[in-house]
Amino acid sequence: MPQDLPSPPESTKSKYWRKPLDADTVKVPHGELHIIVNRCKGCRFCVEYCPRDVLEMAEDFNVKGYHYPLVKDEVACVNCQLCEMLCPEFAIFCTQTEDEEEGGGEDEG
Protein backbone atom coordinates (compact mmCIF):
# COMPACT_ATOMS: atom_id res chain seq x y z
CA MET A 1 0.00 0.00 0.00
CA PRO A 2 1.47 3.42 -0.93
CA GLN A 3 2.42 5.50 2.07
CA ASP A 4 0.49 8.62 1.01
CA LEU A 5 -2.95 6.99 1.08
CA PRO A 6 -4.80 7.81 4.30
CA SER A 7 -5.72 4.74 6.25
CA PRO A 8 -8.91 4.71 8.32
CA PRO A 9 -8.30 5.41 12.00
CA GLU A 10 -8.51 2.38 14.24
CA SER A 11 -11.73 3.58 15.88
CA THR A 12 -13.65 3.46 12.60
CA LYS A 13 -12.48 -0.05 11.76
CA SER A 14 -15.93 -1.59 11.80
CA LYS A 15 -18.06 1.48 11.15
CA TYR A 16 -19.33 3.05 7.95
CA TRP A 17 -17.29 5.95 6.59
CA ARG A 18 -20.55 7.48 5.50
CA LYS A 19 -24.07 6.25 5.83
CA PRO A 20 -24.99 4.33 2.66
CA LEU A 21 -27.87 5.84 0.69
CA ASP A 22 -29.84 2.60 0.71
CA ALA A 23 -29.18 1.85 4.36
CA ASP A 24 -32.87 1.75 5.25
CA THR A 25 -33.78 -0.71 2.48
CA VAL A 26 -30.88 -3.15 2.68
CA LYS A 27 -31.40 -6.00 5.06
CA VAL A 28 -28.26 -6.68 7.06
CA PRO A 29 -27.81 -10.40 7.65
CA HIS A 30 -27.24 -11.53 11.14
CA GLY A 31 -25.16 -14.49 12.19
CA GLU A 32 -24.92 -16.63 15.24
CA LEU A 33 -21.42 -17.70 16.24
CA HIS A 34 -20.59 -21.17 17.47
CA ILE A 35 -17.24 -21.69 19.14
CA ILE A 36 -15.86 -25.15 19.81
CA VAL A 37 -13.76 -24.03 22.74
CA ASN A 38 -11.62 -27.12 23.17
CA ARG A 39 -10.40 -27.18 19.57
CA CYS A 40 -8.96 -23.68 19.81
CA LYS A 41 -5.18 -23.14 19.91
CA GLY A 42 -5.45 -19.45 20.72
CA CYS A 43 -4.05 -18.02 17.48
CA ARG A 44 -6.32 -14.93 17.69
CA PHE A 45 -6.90 -14.87 13.90
CA CYS A 46 -10.68 -14.59 14.38
CA VAL A 47 -10.43 -11.87 17.01
CA GLU A 48 -7.96 -9.85 14.98
CA TYR A 49 -9.66 -10.04 11.59
CA CYS A 50 -13.36 -9.87 12.52
CA PRO A 51 -14.51 -6.81 10.54
CA ARG A 52 -17.13 -6.00 13.18
CA ASP A 53 -15.03 -6.68 16.30
CA VAL A 54 -17.48 -9.27 17.54
CA LEU A 55 -14.95 -11.42 19.36
CA GLU A 56 -12.53 -11.05 22.23
CA MET A 57 -10.13 -13.44 23.90
CA ALA A 58 -11.31 -15.11 27.08
CA GLU A 59 -9.39 -14.78 30.33
CA ASP A 60 -9.87 -18.49 30.93
CA PHE A 61 -8.05 -21.41 29.38
CA ASN A 62 -9.54 -24.32 27.49
CA VAL A 63 -8.62 -27.96 28.02
CA LYS A 64 -5.42 -27.57 25.97
CA GLY A 65 -4.35 -24.53 27.98
CA TYR A 66 -4.99 -21.85 25.39
CA HIS A 67 -7.08 -18.71 25.65
CA TYR A 68 -10.07 -19.00 23.35
CA PRO A 69 -12.37 -16.43 21.72
CA LEU A 70 -15.63 -15.32 23.25
CA VAL A 71 -18.51 -13.45 21.68
CA LYS A 72 -18.30 -9.87 22.91
CA ASP A 73 -21.00 -8.25 20.81
CA GLU A 74 -23.55 -10.77 19.59
CA VAL A 75 -25.70 -8.25 17.71
CA ALA A 76 -22.85 -6.99 15.53
CA CYS A 77 -22.16 -10.30 13.71
CA VAL A 78 -23.25 -10.09 10.07
CA ASN A 79 -22.48 -13.71 9.16
CA CYS A 80 -19.56 -12.82 6.87
CA GLN A 81 -17.93 -16.12 7.90
CA LEU A 82 -14.41 -14.71 7.73
CA CYS A 83 -13.62 -16.15 11.17
CA GLU A 84 -14.85 -19.54 10.01
CA MET A 85 -12.63 -19.43 6.92
CA LEU A 86 -9.54 -18.12 8.72
CA CYS A 87 -9.69 -20.44 11.73
CA PRO A 88 -6.90 -23.02 11.24
CA GLU A 89 -8.41 -25.31 13.88
CA PHE A 90 -11.98 -25.59 12.51
CA ALA A 91 -13.11 -24.30 15.91
CA ILE A 92 -15.47 -21.46 15.04
CA PHE A 93 -18.37 -21.18 12.65
CA CYS A 94 -21.25 -18.99 11.89
CA THR A 95 -24.86 -19.74 11.03
CA GLN A 96 -27.36 -17.33 9.57
CA THR A 97 -30.16 -16.47 11.97
CA GLU A 98 -33.68 -16.43 10.56
CA ASP A 99 -36.56 -13.94 11.02
CA GLU A 100 -34.81 -10.61 10.76
CA GLU A 101 -37.01 -7.55 10.90
CA GLU A 102 -34.39 -4.84 11.39
CA GLY A 103 -33.96 -2.05 8.84
CA GLY A 104 -30.27 -2.55 8.19
CA GLY A 105 -27.28 -0.70 9.51
CA GLU A 106 -29.25 0.48 12.50
CA ASP A 107 -26.84 -0.91 15.02
CA GLU A 108 -23.99 1.10 13.55
CA GLY A 109 -25.89 4.26 12.65
Binding site: R44, M85, L86, P88
Partner: peptide, 18 residues
Protein backbone atom coordinates in the same frame (compact mmCIF):
# COMPACT_ATOMS: atom_id res chain seq x y z
CA UNK B 1 -7.35 -37.62 13.33
CA UNK B 2 -8.13 -34.25 14.88
CA UNK B 3 -6.63 -32.23 16.46
CA UNK B 4 -4.12 -31.83 13.66
CA UNK B 5 -0.41 -31.55 14.32
CA UNK B 6 0.00 -28.02 12.97
CA UNK B 7 1.31 -25.43 15.39
CA UNK B 8 -0.78 -22.60 16.80
CA UNK B 9 -0.90 -19.70 14.26
CA UNK B 10 0.13 -21.96 11.36
CA UNK B 11 -1.81 -21.09 8.23
CA UNK B 12 -2.28 -24.62 6.92
CA UNK B 13 -5.70 -25.12 8.50
CA UNK B 14 -6.90 -22.08 6.58
CA UNK B 15 -5.63 -23.60 3.33
CA UNK B 16 -7.54 -26.82 4.07
CA UNK B 17 -10.73 -24.82 4.70
CA UNK B 18 -10.27 -22.90 1.45
Amino acid sequence: RMPHIWCPTCGLGTVVTA
